[in-house]
Simulated scan of single mutants.
Amino acid sequence: MQNGNPKVHIIIFLVISLFSISNTTDAQNNTGNHQSLSEKQQSIVLISAYTAIGDLEKLEPALRRGLEAGLTINEIKEVLVHLYAYCGFPRSIRGLNTFMGVLDERKANGITDELGPEASAIMDQRSKYERGVETLHELTGEEWGNPESGYGAFAPVIDTFLKEHLFADIFERDLLTYRQRELVTIAALSSMGGVEPMLGGHIRIALNIGVTESRLQQLFSIMEANVGKEEAHTGLEVLSQIMISRNQ
């Protein structure tokens, strides 16, 4: 090589340099994509937020966007069903009715959306309370027995409902992953406002099951752009305090 044509050396150097730059750029892009919410996840955030606050006018295009991003009909139905545990039956049912209208409209326009699979049957023979306790342990990494203080001790029946229904009946359904369910929940709670302790609890769960800080920051950026600055800033503040406490 030392005795070769200098022009050839220059060309080889340029090719190697360009290849190196391309690889570096691809790696940066891959890292960025890894830290970003997918189109499906972004749609889940918007569907959840608009349903929780009852903004049906904005919910309609969010539902269309979800379908176009690749969410199945059953996945979106599951998002809307999951939400009733956090924003109540009225909001959930209005969301479902809105979704029915969107699907009818798309069908009339010749658009066929994918139905997707149904939830798998639950084969676990343990009591729902036991299953709910186990789900909570998977989500939080903590042990959950009978509460000795707080709202659960004050009103034991709500502790039972929480573990048997929310974390067994709902969270066990495999149409959505735990991470997807936490995106649904965090978007709903942050858009509703006034429930910061519960929002903080679900942010901790999301972090515990692998939702990154940057994805949660993006969630609140989506909230700021589409729902409201106050709601987004409250969520970011809760997230910031949690990260400070985790890093101490």
Rank of each mutant, 00 (worst) to 15 (best):
K77R: 14
L175E: 07
E213F: 02
Q41M: 05
T177G: 10
L37E: 06
T135A: 13
I244D: 13
G66F: 06
P197V: 00
N146V: 15
Q2N: 07
M192D: 03
A168F: 13
V157K: 14
N30H: 09
N74C: 03
Q2K: 12
T160K: 13
S22Q: 11
A187Y: 00
L83Q: 13
T51C: 04
L166N: 07
V184L: 13
L199K: 04
S149H: 12
S92C: 15
E172F: 12
E60R: 12
G150T: 09
L80A: 03
E164C: 13
I242Y: 01
N74V: 02
K163Y: 03
M100R: 14
L80I: 11
T185Q: 12
N30G: 07
A49N: 05
S221I: 03
R215H: 04
M223V: 07
R64F: 01
E143A: 11
I205M: 12
D113W: 00
G70H: 08
L115F: 06
Q217K: 15
L139D: 01
K77T: 12
R179A: 11
N247V: 01
E164D: 06
V184W: 06
A188E: 04
V133S: 11
R106F: 07
L239C: 09
T212A: 09
T160G: 00
Q42P: 02
N5Y: 05
G66H: 11
A153V: 06
P117T: 06
P147F: 08
F167H: 09
S22H: 10
A121R: 14
L176A: 15
L46K: 15
I205W: 02
P197G: 05
E148N: 14
L96G: 08
I21V: 15
N146G: 03
Q42N: 06
E230M: 10
T160V: 15
I122L: 13
H165E: 07
S120W: 07
E182I: 11
E196P: 08
S120D: 07
D55T: 08
G145D: 15
S20I: 14
Q42C: 05
L175P: 04
E196Q: 14
L236M: 14
H137N: 10
R64W: 00
S240R: 15
Q125R: 05
G101P: 02
R94P: 00
I203V: 12
